[in-house]
């Protein structure tokens, strides 16, 4: 990391391959059709027996108009395509997305009714689930690039924004990982920052604040100047799959420094829903 807090010496992979992975990722919502199109699809499927019947008639009887046979084939093909489209729509989207979102909401409410042991006020924080993805490296690209990255998959409270930010990570070198998510991933522990500088201070934040924020969170100053995050404390824990391999990271962040402490991340609360996530993500529950 250089003096500006920029990551150096690691080639960035081309972003189109990542965009493609995000687009074709299985975690998106199920495709939803409008009433008109879903009705059209259903009605087209009803043409299947008509088309097949017409084909069999055309084969059996010699006396038929010249257009009869080709038309019956076209009808059959269109109805077959409708069946394929219906199948694709039914199988689109991540089957566990809503369960994971339910777990995050559960966690949020659980902390609401179980304030920490010192009787302090319980501040709300945002919970984000990141999944570890593998970057396909092409044979002809000899240069060493990042091999893994973390993508935000679910968040509570929900926001309308698309979560496009990804964090490149290294297996165990926390120094080169991006973001707090990367640090948690590399260290495999519950980890949270000390107080982060306020980037919205009045009259305006100092350059030193940006620099400190960037080095602590593993981001760049340029990124911070455009994003201008409100988070004053960020922490989280790893999420493993059933067999003990790293699946991803759960990140908490809040604009109030007291919101995240060891008490809020430690103990029964986090145990409980770490296990729920593990079971769901390993394909156990639903």
């Amino acid at each position: 990391m250089d003096t500006d807090g920029n990551l150096r010496g690691h080639g960035w992979p081309s972003t189109w391959s990542i965009d493609l992975t995000l687009m074709t990722g299985y975690w998106r919502d199920q495709i939803k059709l409008s009433k008109f199109w879903s009705l059209t699809l259903r009605l087209t499927q009803l043409l299947a027996p008509l088309g097949l019947g017409a084909i069999s008639i055309a084969i059996t009887y010699d006396y038929k108009p010249a257009w009869f046979f080709p038309t019956s084939i076209v009808v059959a093909v269109i109805s077959a395509l409708a069946f394929i489209a219906q199948w694709a729509i039914d199988n689109s989207g991540c089957p566990y997305k809503k369960y994971v979102e339910a777990v995050l909401e559960y966690a949020d409410q659980f902390w609401e009714i179980h304030p920490n042991q010192y009787g302090k006020e319980r501040f709300r924080f945002r919970i984000t689930l990141f999944e570890l993805m593998t970057l396909r490296r092409w044979r002809w690209r000899k240069r060493k690039t990042w091999t893994h990255y973390l993508v935000a998959r679910a968040r509570f409270p929900k926001s309308g924004q698309r979560r496009k930010r990804i964090w490149f990570v290294h297996d165990h070198e926390a120094e080169v990982c991006q973001g707090i998510a990367g640090r948690i991933f590399a260290k495999e522990t519950i980890l949270f920052t000390e107080e982060l500088p306020d980037l919205h201070s009045i009259p305006q934040p100092r350059d030193a604040d940006f620099k400190k924020y960037a080095t602590s969170t593993g981001t760049t100053i340029a990124e911070l100047r455009t994003d201008m995050p409100y988070s004053r404390v960020i922490g989280g824990m790893p999420v493993l799959s059933q067999d003990g391999q790293r699946w991803g990271v759960l990140v908490f962040d809040a604009p109030i420094t007291e919101a995240i402490s060891k008490d809020s991340l430690y103990g029964e609360n986090s145990d409980r829903f770490a296990m729920m996530l593990t079971v769901i993500l390993s394909g156990g529950a639903p």
Binding site: R183, T189, I190, M237, E268
Partner: peptide, 28 residues
């Protein structure tokens, strides 16, 4: 019983910045 086991405040340093760490729920 997790409350009976003392858990100190561990600290790790990454790029000269201090972070608080604790054992992950999967390793307790």
């Amino acid at each position: 019983d997790a409350s009976q086991i003392p858990s100190g405040n561990a600290v790790t340093i990454i790029n000269g910045v201090k972070f608080n760490v604790a054992v992950s729920p999967y390793q307790f």
